[in-house]
Design a protein around this nucleic acid. Structure first.
Lengths: 206, 206
DNA sequence: CCCCTAGGTGCAGTGACTATAACTGTACAG
DNA sequence: CTGTACAGTTATAGTCACTGCACCTAGGGG
Protein backbone atom coordinates (compact mmCIF):
# COMPACT_ATOMS: atom_id res chain seq x y z
CA UNK A 1 0.00 0.00 0.00
CA UNK A 2 2.10 2.94 -1.08
CA UNK A 3 0.76 6.40 -1.74
CA UNK A 4 0.45 5.31 -5.35
CA UNK A 5 -2.88 4.10 -6.62
CA UNK A 6 -3.35 0.76 -8.27
CA UNK A 7 -4.25 0.46 -11.91
CA UNK A 8 -7.84 -0.34 -11.03
CA UNK A 9 -8.27 2.85 -9.02
CA UNK A 10 -6.53 4.87 -11.71
CA UNK A 11 -8.87 3.59 -14.39
CA UNK A 12 -11.87 4.36 -12.24
CA UNK A 13 -10.68 7.91 -11.84
CA UNK A 14 -10.05 8.18 -15.54
CA UNK A 15 -13.61 7.16 -16.23
CA UNK A 16 -14.91 9.67 -13.73
CA UNK A 17 -12.74 12.45 -15.13
CA UNK A 18 -13.82 11.61 -18.65
CA UNK A 19 -17.47 11.89 -17.61
CA UNK A 20 -16.87 15.22 -15.91
CA UNK A 21 -14.98 16.58 -18.90
CA UNK A 22 -17.62 15.40 -21.36
CA UNK A 23 -20.41 16.82 -19.21
CA UNK A 24 -18.76 20.21 -18.84
CA UNK A 25 -18.19 20.45 -22.55
CA UNK A 26 -21.65 19.34 -23.63
CA UNK A 27 -23.49 21.41 -21.04
CA UNK A 28 -21.43 24.48 -21.90
CA UNK A 29 -22.33 23.96 -25.55
CA UNK A 30 -26.02 23.12 -25.30
CA UNK A 31 -27.26 23.73 -21.75
CA UNK A 32 -28.06 21.26 -19.02
CA UNK A 33 -31.57 20.42 -20.14
CA UNK A 34 -30.52 19.74 -23.71
CA UNK A 35 -28.02 17.08 -22.74
CA UNK A 36 -29.05 13.62 -21.63
CA UNK A 37 -27.08 11.50 -19.21
CA UNK A 38 -26.80 8.89 -21.93
CA UNK A 39 -25.16 11.41 -24.24
CA UNK A 40 -22.61 12.35 -21.61
CA UNK A 41 -21.80 8.69 -21.14
CA UNK A 42 -21.53 8.20 -24.89
CA UNK A 43 -19.19 11.19 -25.20
CA UNK A 44 -17.01 9.74 -22.45
CA UNK A 45 -17.15 6.37 -24.22
CA UNK A 46 -18.73 4.43 -21.37
CA UNK A 47 -22.11 2.81 -21.02
CA UNK A 48 -25.05 4.86 -19.71
CA UNK A 49 -25.25 2.55 -16.74
CA UNK A 50 -21.73 3.49 -15.73
CA UNK A 51 -22.66 7.14 -15.46
CA UNK A 52 -24.96 6.39 -12.55
CA UNK A 53 -22.38 4.22 -10.86
CA UNK A 54 -20.23 7.32 -10.55
CA UNK A 55 -22.90 9.94 -9.84
CA UNK A 56 -26.12 9.72 -7.87
CA UNK A 57 -27.83 12.21 -10.14
CA UNK A 58 -27.21 13.81 -13.49
CA UNK A 59 -26.66 17.15 -11.75
CA UNK A 60 -23.84 15.78 -9.60
CA UNK A 61 -21.45 15.47 -12.49
CA UNK A 62 -21.21 19.27 -12.44
CA UNK A 63 -21.02 19.66 -8.68
CA UNK A 64 -18.00 17.70 -7.57
CA UNK A 65 -17.99 15.74 -4.37
CA UNK A 66 -20.64 16.52 -1.77
CA UNK A 67 -18.41 15.46 1.11
CA UNK A 68 -16.02 18.18 0.13
CA UNK A 69 -18.49 20.92 1.05
CA UNK A 70 -19.52 19.38 4.32
CA UNK A 71 -15.97 18.60 5.37
CA UNK A 72 -14.87 22.14 4.59
CA UNK A 73 -17.64 23.48 6.79
CA UNK A 74 -16.83 21.14 9.66
CA UNK A 75 -13.16 21.97 9.43
CA UNK A 76 -13.97 25.67 9.64
CA UNK A 77 -16.05 25.11 12.76
CA UNK A 78 -13.32 23.09 14.41
CA UNK A 79 -10.76 25.76 13.57
CA UNK A 80 -12.86 28.48 15.18
CA UNK A 81 -11.58 31.37 17.24
CA UNK A 82 -12.80 30.52 20.76
CA UNK A 83 -13.78 34.15 21.23
CA UNK A 84 -16.24 34.02 18.34
CA UNK A 85 -19.91 33.49 19.03
CA UNK A 86 -21.61 30.59 17.19
CA UNK A 87 -23.00 32.81 14.49
CA UNK A 88 -19.62 34.15 13.53
CA UNK A 89 -18.12 30.69 13.47
CA UNK A 90 -20.94 29.54 11.23
CA UNK A 91 -20.37 32.47 8.93
CA UNK A 92 -16.84 31.22 8.34
CA UNK A 93 -18.15 27.71 7.83
CA UNK A 94 -20.67 28.89 5.25
CA UNK A 95 -18.01 30.73 3.31
CA UNK A 96 -15.77 27.68 3.42
CA UNK A 97 -18.53 25.37 2.19
CA UNK A 98 -19.66 27.55 -0.65
CA UNK A 99 -16.15 28.18 -1.81
CA UNK A 100 -14.79 24.68 -1.26
CA UNK A 101 -13.00 23.54 -4.38
CA UNK A 102 -11.21 20.35 -5.41
CA UNK A 103 -7.94 22.25 -5.37
CA UNK A 104 -6.35 25.62 -5.79
CA UNK A 105 -8.07 28.96 -5.37
CA UNK A 106 -11.63 28.26 -4.36
CA UNK A 107 -13.33 31.42 -5.51
CA UNK A 108 -11.67 31.19 -8.89
CA UNK A 109 -12.91 27.66 -9.30
CA UNK A 110 -16.43 28.62 -8.41
CA UNK A 111 -16.33 31.73 -10.56
CA UNK A 112 -15.27 29.73 -13.56
CA UNK A 113 -17.95 27.10 -13.08
CA UNK A 114 -20.70 29.43 -11.94
CA UNK A 115 -22.31 29.54 -15.34
CA UNK A 116 -22.60 25.78 -15.45
CA UNK A 117 -23.79 25.37 -11.88
CA UNK A 118 -26.16 28.31 -11.61
CA UNK A 119 -27.24 28.26 -15.22
CA UNK A 120 -29.81 25.57 -14.62
CA UNK A 121 -32.51 25.65 -12.01
CA UNK A 122 -32.16 21.92 -11.56
CA UNK A 123 -28.47 22.03 -10.81
CA UNK A 124 -28.93 24.97 -8.46
CA UNK A 125 -31.70 23.09 -6.64
CA UNK A 126 -29.52 20.03 -6.31
CA UNK A 127 -26.71 22.10 -4.82
CA UNK A 128 -29.10 23.52 -2.24
CA UNK A 129 -30.36 20.04 -1.46
CA UNK A 130 -26.87 18.81 -0.86
CA UNK A 131 -25.97 21.69 1.40
CA UNK A 132 -29.18 21.04 3.27
CA UNK A 133 -28.28 17.39 3.65
CA UNK A 134 -25.00 18.36 5.30
CA UNK A 135 -26.75 20.35 8.00
CA UNK A 136 -27.04 17.47 10.42
CA UNK A 137 -23.30 16.97 10.55
CA UNK A 138 -22.64 20.68 10.82
CA UNK A 139 -25.04 20.91 13.72
CA UNK A 140 -23.17 18.13 15.49
CA UNK A 141 -19.89 19.91 14.90
CA UNK A 142 -21.32 23.16 16.22
CA UNK A 143 -22.63 21.51 19.36
CA UNK A 144 -19.26 19.92 19.93
CA UNK A 145 -17.74 23.39 19.68
CA UNK A 146 -20.38 25.02 21.88
CA UNK A 147 -21.60 22.33 24.30
CA UNK A 148 -24.04 24.66 26.02
CA UNK A 149 -26.08 25.22 22.87
CA UNK A 150 -29.60 23.81 22.82
CA UNK A 151 -30.23 21.25 20.07
CA UNK A 152 -33.03 23.06 18.30
CA UNK A 153 -31.26 26.39 18.61
CA UNK A 154 -28.14 24.93 17.08
CA UNK A 155 -30.16 23.58 14.17
CA UNK A 156 -31.90 26.88 13.62
CA UNK A 157 -28.56 28.71 13.71
CA UNK A 158 -26.93 26.36 11.24
CA UNK A 159 -29.90 26.50 8.90
CA UNK A 160 -30.13 30.23 9.17
CA UNK A 161 -26.52 30.96 8.34
CA UNK A 162 -25.93 28.21 5.78
CA UNK A 163 -29.26 28.75 4.06
CA UNK A 164 -28.86 32.50 4.11
CA UNK A 165 -25.40 32.43 2.62
CA UNK A 166 -26.37 29.87 -0.01
CA UNK A 167 -29.46 31.71 -1.18
CA UNK A 168 -27.69 35.05 -1.13
CA UNK A 169 -24.81 33.77 -3.23
CA UNK A 170 -27.10 31.89 -5.59
CA UNK A 171 -29.26 34.90 -6.17
CA UNK A 172 -26.49 37.36 -6.96
CA UNK A 173 -24.60 34.90 -9.13
CA UNK A 174 -27.65 34.28 -11.27
CA UNK A 175 -28.23 38.01 -11.55
CA UNK A 176 -24.67 38.72 -12.59
CA UNK A 177 -24.66 35.89 -15.12
CA UNK A 178 -27.99 37.00 -16.60
CA UNK A 179 -26.41 40.40 -16.98
CA UNK A 180 -23.62 38.86 -19.00
CA UNK A 181 -21.10 39.21 -16.20
CA UNK A 182 -17.73 37.54 -16.54
CA UNK A 183 -15.77 35.43 -14.09
CA UNK A 184 -14.38 38.41 -12.22
CA UNK A 185 -17.74 40.02 -11.62
CA UNK A 186 -19.09 36.68 -10.43
CA UNK A 187 -16.27 36.45 -7.92
CA UNK A 188 -16.90 39.96 -6.65
CA UNK A 189 -20.61 39.29 -6.37
CA UNK A 190 -19.98 36.13 -4.35
CA UNK A 191 -17.78 38.08 -1.99
CA UNK A 192 -20.42 40.78 -1.60
CA UNK A 193 -23.19 38.27 -1.00
CA UNK A 194 -21.20 36.40 1.62
CA UNK A 195 -20.42 39.63 3.36
CA UNK A 196 -24.04 40.75 3.44
CA UNK A 197 -25.31 37.34 4.41
CA UNK A 198 -22.89 36.93 7.28
CA UNK A 199 -22.69 40.42 8.70
CA UNK A 200 -26.41 40.27 9.34
CA UNK A 201 -28.45 42.03 11.94
CA UNK A 202 -30.20 45.37 11.96
CA UNK A 203 -27.43 48.04 12.06
CA UNK A 204 -27.56 48.74 15.78
CA UNK A 205 -30.43 48.26 18.06
CA UNK A 206 -32.99 51.02 17.67
CA UNK B 1 -71.10 37.75 -14.12
CA UNK B 2 -71.64 37.69 -10.39
CA UNK B 3 -69.13 36.58 -7.81
CA UNK B 4 -70.34 33.05 -8.59
CA UNK B 5 -68.20 30.86 -10.72
CA UNK B 6 -69.40 29.16 -13.83
CA UNK B 7 -69.97 25.44 -13.89
CA UNK B 8 -66.76 24.93 -15.84
CA UNK B 9 -64.63 26.63 -13.22
CA UNK B 10 -66.40 24.78 -10.43
CA UNK B 11 -65.73 21.42 -12.03
CA UNK B 12 -62.11 22.30 -12.49
CA UNK B 13 -61.81 23.13 -8.81
CA UNK B 14 -63.56 19.93 -7.88
CA UNK B 15 -61.02 17.97 -9.86
CA UNK B 16 -58.17 19.83 -8.22
CA UNK B 17 -59.63 19.37 -4.75
CA UNK B 18 -60.18 15.68 -5.41
CA UNK B 19 -56.54 15.30 -6.42
CA UNK B 20 -55.35 17.13 -3.31
CA UNK B 21 -57.58 15.06 -1.05
CA UNK B 22 -56.53 11.79 -2.65
CA UNK B 23 -52.88 12.77 -2.47
CA UNK B 24 -53.04 13.77 1.19
CA UNK B 25 -54.77 10.55 2.09
CA UNK B 26 -52.48 8.25 0.12
CA UNK B 27 -49.29 10.00 1.18
CA UNK B 28 -50.35 9.98 4.82
CA UNK B 29 -51.02 6.26 4.56
CA UNK B 30 -47.99 5.13 2.62
CA UNK B 31 -45.47 7.97 2.36
CA UNK B 32 -44.64 10.18 -0.60
CA UNK B 33 -42.23 7.83 -2.33
CA UNK B 34 -44.61 4.90 -2.15
CA UNK B 35 -47.34 6.70 -4.05
CA UNK B 36 -47.20 7.34 -7.78
CA UNK B 37 -48.78 10.29 -9.50
CA UNK B 38 -50.84 7.83 -11.52
CA UNK B 39 -52.24 6.31 -8.34
CA UNK B 40 -53.28 9.70 -7.03
CA UNK B 41 -55.01 10.40 -10.32
CA UNK B 42 -56.71 7.01 -10.19
CA UNK B 43 -57.89 7.61 -6.63
CA UNK B 44 -59.32 10.95 -7.72
CA UNK B 45 -60.90 9.23 -10.71
CA UNK B 46 -59.14 11.28 -13.37
CA UNK B 47 -56.55 10.39 -15.95
CA UNK B 48 -52.84 10.59 -15.09
CA UNK B 49 -52.43 13.29 -17.69
CA UNK B 50 -54.93 15.48 -15.86
CA UNK B 51 -52.82 15.36 -12.74
CA UNK B 52 -50.01 17.18 -14.49
CA UNK B 53 -52.36 19.70 -16.00
CA UNK B 54 -53.20 20.80 -12.48
CA UNK B 55 -49.75 20.50 -10.91
CA UNK B 56 -46.34 21.11 -12.41
CA UNK B 57 -44.78 18.38 -10.30
CA UNK B 58 -45.94 15.53 -8.14
CA UNK B 59 -44.69 17.41 -5.06
CA UNK B 60 -46.86 20.44 -5.77
CA UNK B 61 -50.07 18.63 -4.92
CA UNK B 62 -48.99 18.80 -1.26
CA UNK B 63 -47.71 22.36 -1.33
CA UNK B 64 -50.68 24.47 -2.35
CA UNK B 65 -50.27 27.46 -4.61
CA UNK B 66 -46.81 28.91 -5.10
CA UNK B 67 -48.17 32.39 -5.74
CA UNK B 68 -49.62 32.36 -2.26
CA UNK B 69 -46.18 32.36 -0.66
CA UNK B 70 -44.74 35.03 -2.89
CA UNK B 71 -47.78 37.29 -2.60
CA UNK B 72 -47.75 37.01 1.18
CA UNK B 73 -44.10 38.09 1.20
CA UNK B 74 -44.69 41.00 -1.13
CA UNK B 75 -47.68 42.14 0.91
CA UNK B 76 -45.56 42.09 4.04
CA UNK B 77 -42.93 44.24 2.39
CA UNK B 78 -45.48 46.74 1.18
CA UNK B 79 -47.02 46.93 4.62
CA UNK B 80 -43.70 47.71 6.24
CA UNK B 81 -43.10 50.14 9.04
CA UNK B 82 -41.14 52.97 7.34
CA UNK B 83 -38.83 53.10 10.34
CA UNK B 84 -37.70 49.49 9.82
CA UNK B 85 -34.44 48.80 8.01
CA UNK B 86 -34.63 46.43 5.00
CA UNK B 87 -33.51 43.44 7.00
CA UNK B 88 -36.30 43.80 9.51
CA UNK B 89 -38.87 44.23 6.79
CA UNK B 90 -37.57 41.11 5.12
CA UNK B 91 -37.77 39.20 8.36
CA UNK B 92 -41.49 39.91 8.45
CA UNK B 93 -41.80 38.92 4.81
CA UNK B 94 -40.03 35.62 5.46
CA UNK B 95 -42.33 34.80 8.33
CA UNK B 96 -45.34 35.67 6.20
CA UNK B 97 -44.16 33.50 3.31
CA UNK B 98 -43.35 30.46 5.36
CA UNK B 99 -46.57 30.66 7.29
CA UNK B 100 -48.81 31.63 4.39
CA UNK B 101 -51.84 29.35 4.37
CA UNK B 102 -54.86 29.01 2.10
CA UNK B 103 -57.04 30.24 4.92
CA UNK B 104 -57.39 30.49 8.68
CA UNK B 105 -54.56 30.32 11.16
CA UNK B 106 -51.38 29.95 9.22
CA UNK B 107 -49.13 28.29 11.75
CA UNK B 108 -51.81 25.74 12.57
CA UNK B 109 -52.17 24.86 8.95
CA UNK B 110 -48.43 24.42 8.54
CA UNK B 111 -48.15 22.50 11.77
CA UNK B 112 -50.81 20.05 10.69
CA UNK B 113 -49.26 19.50 7.28
CA UNK B 114 -45.66 19.56 8.39
CA UNK B 115 -45.39 15.79 8.44
CA UNK B 116 -46.54 15.56 4.86
CA UNK B 117 -44.42 18.44 3.59
CA UNK B 118 -41.21 17.84 5.52
CA UNK B 119 -41.54 14.07 5.66
CA UNK B 120 -40.01 13.66 2.23
CA UNK B 121 -36.74 15.08 1.06
CA UNK B 122 -38.20 15.61 -2.37
CA UNK B 123 -41.13 17.68 -1.18
CA UNK B 124 -38.86 19.71 1.07
CA UNK B 125 -36.49 20.36 -1.82
CA UNK B 126 -39.35 21.43 -4.03
CA UNK B 127 -40.56 23.88 -1.41
CA UNK B 128 -37.10 25.43 -1.24
CA UNK B 129 -36.96 25.63 -5.00
CA UNK B 130 -40.26 27.48 -5.12
CA UNK B 131 -39.26 29.94 -2.46
CA UNK B 132 -36.08 30.52 -4.38
CA UNK B 133 -38.06 31.16 -7.54
CA UNK B 134 -40.03 33.90 -5.83
CA UNK B 135 -36.90 35.82 -4.91
CA UNK B 136 -36.88 37.95 -8.02
CA UNK B 137 -40.29 39.42 -7.26
CA UNK B 138 -39.43 39.96 -3.63
CA UNK B 139 -36.30 41.81 -4.65
CA UNK B 140 -38.34 44.09 -6.86
CA UNK B 141 -40.76 44.76 -4.03
CA UNK B 142 -37.89 45.51 -1.68
CA UNK B 143 -36.32 47.95 -4.10
CA UNK B 144 -39.64 49.68 -4.51
CA UNK B 145 -39.78 50.03 -0.75
CA UNK B 146 -36.16 51.15 -0.44
CA UNK B 147 -35.26 52.93 -3.69
CA UNK B 148 -31.72 53.68 -2.58
CA UNK B 149 -30.79 50.03 -2.28
CA UNK B 150 -28.27 48.68 -4.77
CA UNK B 151 -29.57 45.87 -6.95
CA UNK B 152 -27.06 43.24 -5.94
CA UNK B 153 -27.28 44.20 -2.31
CA UNK B 154 -31.03 43.89 -2.41
CA UNK B 155 -30.74 40.44 -3.92
CA UNK B 156 -28.22 39.32 -1.35
CA UNK B 157 -30.42 40.63 1.45
CA UNK B 158 -33.50 38.87 0.16
CA UNK B 159 -31.65 35.62 -0.36
CA UNK B 160 -29.99 35.85 3.00
CA UNK B 161 -33.15 36.39 5.00
CA UNK B 162 -35.52 34.18 3.01
CA UNK B 163 -32.99 31.38 2.64
CA UNK B 164 -31.96 31.63 6.26
CA UNK B 165 -35.50 31.49 7.55
CA UNK B 166 -36.44 28.67 5.23
CA UNK B 167 -33.47 26.47 6.09
CA UNK B 168 -33.81 27.20 9.78
CA UNK B 169 -37.48 26.30 9.84
CA UNK B 170 -36.98 23.24 7.66
CA UNK B 171 -34.19 21.96 9.84
CA UNK B 172 -36.00 22.25 13.16
CA UNK B 173 -39.26 20.90 11.80
CA UNK B 174 -37.57 17.78 10.51
CA UNK B 175 -35.80 17.35 13.85
CA UNK B 176 -39.00 17.69 15.83
CA UNK B 177 -40.89 15.30 13.55
CA UNK B 178 -38.09 12.74 13.70
CA UNK B 179 -38.35 13.00 17.44
CA UNK B 180 -42.03 12.12 17.24
CA UNK B 181 -43.16 15.65 18.02
CA UNK B 182 -46.82 16.54 17.61
CA UNK B 183 -48.43 19.51 15.94
CA UNK B 184 -47.94 21.80 18.92
CA UNK B 185 -44.24 21.14 19.20
CA UNK B 186 -43.87 21.73 15.47
CA UNK B 187 -45.56 25.10 15.84
CA UNK B 188 -43.31 26.08 18.71
CA UNK B 189 -40.24 24.97 16.81
CA UNK B 190 -41.23 27.05 13.80
CA UNK B 191 -41.64 30.08 16.01
CA UNK B 192 -38.24 29.50 17.60
CA UNK B 193 -36.54 29.03 14.25
CA UNK B 194 -38.06 32.18 12.79
CA UNK B 195 -36.96 34.12 15.82
CA UNK B 196 -33.40 32.88 15.64
CA UNK B 197 -33.21 33.28 11.89
CA UNK B 198 -34.45 36.83 11.92
CA UNK B 199 -32.88 38.27 15.03
CA UNK B 200 -29.48 37.60 13.52
CA UNK B 201 -26.20 39.35 13.86
CA UNK B 202 -23.06 38.94 15.91
CA UNK B 203 -23.55 41.10 19.03
CA UNK B 204 -21.81 44.25 17.85
CA UNK B 205 -19.22 44.99 15.25
CA UNK B 206 -16.29 42.57 14.82
C1' DC C 1 -1.56 -19.85 -11.46
C1' DC C 2 -6.00 -19.45 -9.46
C1' DC C 3 -9.61 -17.17 -7.22
C1' DC C 4 -12.01 -13.21 -5.43
C1' DT C 5 -13.48 -8.80 -6.08
C1' DA C 6 -14.65 -4.40 -8.06
C1' DG C 7 -15.57 -1.72 -12.05
C1' DG C 8 -18.05 -1.90 -16.10
C1' DT C 9 -21.81 -3.65 -19.34
C1' DG C 10 -26.47 -4.92 -21.34
C1' DC C 11 -31.05 -5.32 -20.52
C1' DA C 12 -35.35 -4.84 -18.84
C1' DG C 13 -38.12 -2.17 -15.97
C1' DT C 14 -40.28 1.85 -13.11
C1' DG C 15 -42.04 6.24 -12.81
C1' DA C 16 -42.11 11.35 -13.65
C1' DC C 17 -43.32 14.21 -17.05
C1' DT C 18 -44.70 15.70 -22.12
C1' DA C 19 -46.48 16.27 -27.13
C1' DT C 20 -50.21 15.52 -29.76
C1' DA C 21 -54.61 14.90 -31.23
C1' DA C 22 -59.06 13.89 -30.25
C1' DC C 23 -63.36 14.19 -27.40
C1' DT C 24 -66.87 16.54 -24.41
C1' DG C 25 -69.41 19.72 -22.04
C1' DT C 26 -69.94 24.69 -21.23
C1' DA C 27 -70.47 29.32 -22.51
C1' DC C 28 -71.92 32.57 -25.44
C1' DA C 29 -73.26 35.04 -29.81
C1' DG C 30 -76.57 35.30 -33.13
C1' DC D 1 -82.57 27.45 -29.96
C1' DT D 2 -78.49 26.58 -32.61
C1' DG D 3 -73.88 26.82 -34.23
C1' DT D 4 -69.42 27.50 -32.74
C1' DA D 5 -65.31 28.58 -29.98
C1' DC D 6 -62.90 26.88 -26.41
C1' DA D 7 -61.38 24.99 -21.75
C1' DG D 8 -60.80 20.80 -19.39
C1' DT D 9 -60.05 16.16 -19.90
C1' DT D 10 -58.59 11.95 -22.09
C1' DA D 11 -55.92 8.11 -24.64
C1' DT D 12 -51.85 7.22 -26.83
C1' DA D 13 -47.30 6.99 -27.24
C1' DG D 14 -43.50 8.76 -26.26
C1' DT D 15 -38.56 10.64 -23.67
C1' DC D 16 -35.53 10.42 -20.04
C1' DA D 17 -33.68 9.84 -15.22
C1' DC D 18 -32.60 6.29 -12.54
C1' DT D 19 -32.46 1.15 -10.68
C1' DG D 20 -31.98 -4.02 -10.10
C1' DC D 21 -29.90 -7.90 -11.87
C1' DA D 22 -27.08 -11.16 -14.23
C1' DC D 23 -22.98 -11.22 -16.35
C1' DC D 24 -18.22 -10.30 -17.98
C1' DT D 25 -13.50 -8.92 -17.49
C1' DA D 26 -9.34 -7.40 -15.55
C1' DG D 27 -6.60 -6.38 -11.08
C1' DG D 28 -4.43 -7.81 -7.47
C1' DG D 29 -3.58 -10.91 -3.57
C1' DG D 30 -2.37 -15.46 -2.29
Amino acid sequence: MTGELGRRERKKRQTREALIRAANRLVAERGFDEVTAAEIAEAADVSPRTFFLHFDAKEDVLLGDARLNTDAGIAAIEARDPADPPRTTLAHAAAAMIASAPSGDALSWLGARARLIFGSEQVRARLMQRLLAGQEELTEALRRAYPDLDGLEARALVGSVIGGATFAVGSVVVAVLDDGGDEDRVRDAIRLALQIATQSGPPRTP
